[in-house]
Design a protein around this nucleic acid. Structure first.
Lengths: 224, 224
DNA sequence: CCAATACTTCGATAGCCATCGAACTAATAG
DNA sequence: CTATTAGTTCGATGGCTATCGAAGTATTGG
């Protein structure tokens, strides 16, 4: 059977499934039980939903002992969800508060596998300002100076470039309506922040919690 | 909670509505009746679908006399549909990382009920070149010479014209970003190609596979 | 005026599907 | 071994909605 856009739409078009998909936007693989809790449904129902999502190719599953870990199939799918989040926020009333009300969520979130939120858009703007990134709607590119900048920070660009995904790609941010840093560099920055323990992923949400010191150190390191 | 991604999903997640949305990807505003024909449903049903799409903000409507012209609300929405078309075509492939690069898919696809892809845009350009088609963003029309050209090829234009859908209509091609030949003539060309066994629909994807001889014959017949 | 076209609203039907209880398999822990 | 946890399959139910017939409004054209 050939998935057309209607089948994709109806896959996302269910409350329970959409909650699961959004929960998986954190980039982390989750178990069936965790996802059933996210979606507020019984385990049986979750199981049937997850089977559909896997069969249709939106999710992949990895079995590990008695657990089954589910994950978005790839960037393409994550991009679709992000896209829909964008649209839904722009379609919903022109309320004063755009985006999530949770301060922490607004300040910094994880979008699939890279940082999003205020801090991330600040970083992106700053990199464009310094001409480290040439801003292009379809795909931004890293300038020579930008390459040097990330090399100095310790990013192994040759390794990153080996991956199939583009090095650097803006990604519309659904709470800020601006671009933030996605692509493999975006992913590297997130892992850098986590590894230095400047921030922690908040379990049960997509928020990224910076410590005070971590935030200071982050701004300094990245020149904000 | 206003429109969340589940409501957007379920809006697209209906065959009739998704057909309408895809028909509107051409950028042209279409009337309710035209859209009901595209979706193969009655006028009443179309009316209720269109009301939902407008109310949710995916479409905008402009009243003009006794007609109501519908259009995608903006590029954001068009981008969503395009995104979903991309995903659906990449999900129907086995391989994880092909994307739009699959040669056969790129060379020639079926878009709804007419040909798309490189070959189709070449055909469209050639027809415009020879002034068989008067290219107009709002609505392309077949010139007298074009009418003769298709008559000579054996297309029963009077029968085609009897259908309510426009004879000839450009349709934005998502992998080429150019116009290709849609409308009832586009549909006729596709059936012509299939009937002459120059190409076969690939069952598990939207690709159209030309044989070597078929491709040669096609180019000759249509003057490419 | 009347007739035709464009589109909508209402109401009834029918099919689809999300949900959960109950009963299953499977892995782990003790 | 038994008990527990993770996850599945099956079947019944209930709710939701796409669909169209019939009847309505609105606009245009003679």
């Amino acid at each position: 059977m050939e998935p057309n856009i209607a089948t994709i739409g109806s896959l996302v078009g269910d409350q329970a499934r959409s909650k699961m998909l959004i929960a998986l936007m954190g980039g982390k693989a989750l178990t069936a039980t965790e996802l059933s809790l996210e979606a507020d449904i019984s385990a049986q129902t979750a199981s049937s939903h997850l089977a559909k999502l896997v069969e249709s190719g939106l999710l992949v599953v990895r079995k590990q002992g008695r657990h089954r870990y589910f994950q978005l199939k790839g960037e393409e799918v994550a991009g679709l969800i992000e896209n829909m989040l964008n649209i839904s926020s722009s379609l919903s009333e022109e309320s004063v508060f755009t985006g999530p009300k949770d301060k922490n969520l607004r300040a910094s979130r994880i979008c699939y596998d890279h940082m999003a939120g205020e801090l991330s858009t600040q970083l992106y703007e700053s990199l464009v300002d310094k001409q480290f990134i040439k801003d292009n709607i379809s795909e931004s590119t890293l300038s020579e100076e930008g390459r040097q900048f990330f090399f100095d920070l310790g990013a192994d660009l040759s390794e990153l470039a080996g991956l199939k995904r583009p090095l650097c790609k803006p990604c519309l941010d659904w709470s800020e309506r601006k671009s933030h840093l996605a692509g493999s560099i975006g992913k590297w920055v997130l892992s850098d922040v986590i590894q230095r323990k400047w921030a922690k992923r908040d379990l049960n949400s997509r928020a990224l919690r910076f410590s005070d010191d971590g935030l200071k150190a982050f701004k300094k390191r990245y020149g904000l």
